[in-house]
Nucleic acid binder design. Structure first.
Lengths: 159, 159
DNA sequence: CAGCAAGTGTAATACCATCACACCCATTCG
DNA sequence: CGAATGGGTGTGATGGTATTACACTTGCTG
């Protein structure tokens, strides 16, 4: 099992957390010959400002403020598409919002822990859970491509 | 484990399936003293016309056609809110769409099997999976309120 | 019958996402 | 060298999803 809940749902040195994520993203993109352009990196940076999922229009607004001029939706959505394709971020469907992926280098299936009080989202991956999903689907004769699992509740610090 | 995948993902007498769902909804609402008004029942009926999730604006359009006059969004959203609160339907976040619940009388956690080919959605509930989710969350110190699990893939008939 | 709560109708608006087209720029290759 | 190509970006318009605010009705209840 991998998880970033100890960071996401607690006080921590987020400056460091954020810088590590960006450094990793740069390294990964270089390795893949994927172009992490200034626009894309700016969006990733904004997403990593917190552990709360952020909406596309908030990004548009903040990016506009940063750059001193109006930013239009496709600019941000294109950056988001790239970051999603590279596995650097995830979309949280129930929130129509985006969150940085703490494990972009590892192929994994996701599980999000969404705290209803602080709003922070942690990401986990657990083999036992993947197996339970696979076997439940198998019992219905269903061939699994992928899944999305969001768990709502209270993180340890907010209980 | 409960599941409606044998019906949802196969040919079946859907007329019967639909009538059963409506009858059950009426009985349940009566038992709870919840008012299944004509508007609400009309929306539920439209949702049960198929096993594919249906969007709010499709409902608005179809309801307008049925009633012979323009229907506005709040009309449908209010009905949806009621049906969701009564557990008679579910929302599929990744699709922004709604699907009838085959087990409204049973308190359960949901798991949806979404077929990418035929578009039909089956609902399952499995204790082993609930336990795996609970234990994974527990390892992160997370107190679970509820969850949403969507599994994408191919149903048996579409493989 | 007054007061209240639930349900409904309507217009307007907010929020989320995509399309279509133009332009720029770096790379490639004749 | 220069045309062709393809990826990335800027911009206006549009499409799709959901909520707010306010007015009105109806049925119940004190």
């Amino acid at each position: 099992m991998i998880s970033n809940s100890r960071a996401a749902h607690r006080d921590h040195d987020h400056e460091r957390c954020q810088n590590a994520a960006l450094a990793q993203a740069r390294a990964l993109c270089q390795h893949r010959s994927a172009r992490l352009t200034p626009a894309r990196e700016a969006v990733l940076h904004l997403i990593w400002r917190s552990h709360q999922p952020i909406g596309a229009y908030t990004l548009i607004e903040q990016l506009g403020a940063e750059q001193g001029h109006r930013v239009l939706p496709p600019t941000v959505y294109r950056a988001l598409d790239f970051l999603l394709a590279q596995g650097l971020i995830h979309r949280i469907p129930s929130r129509n919002a985006f969150i940085g992926c703490p494990f972009p280098e590892v192929r994994h299936r996701n599980l999000f822990l969404l705290c209803r009080r602080c709003g922070a989202v942690a990401e986990c991956s657990a083999d036992t859970l993947d197996q339970a999903i696979a076997s439940t689907a198998a019992r219905a004769g269903f061939a699994v491509d992928g899944h999305s699992l969001e768990i709502d509740g209270l993180c340890q610090q907010c209980q």
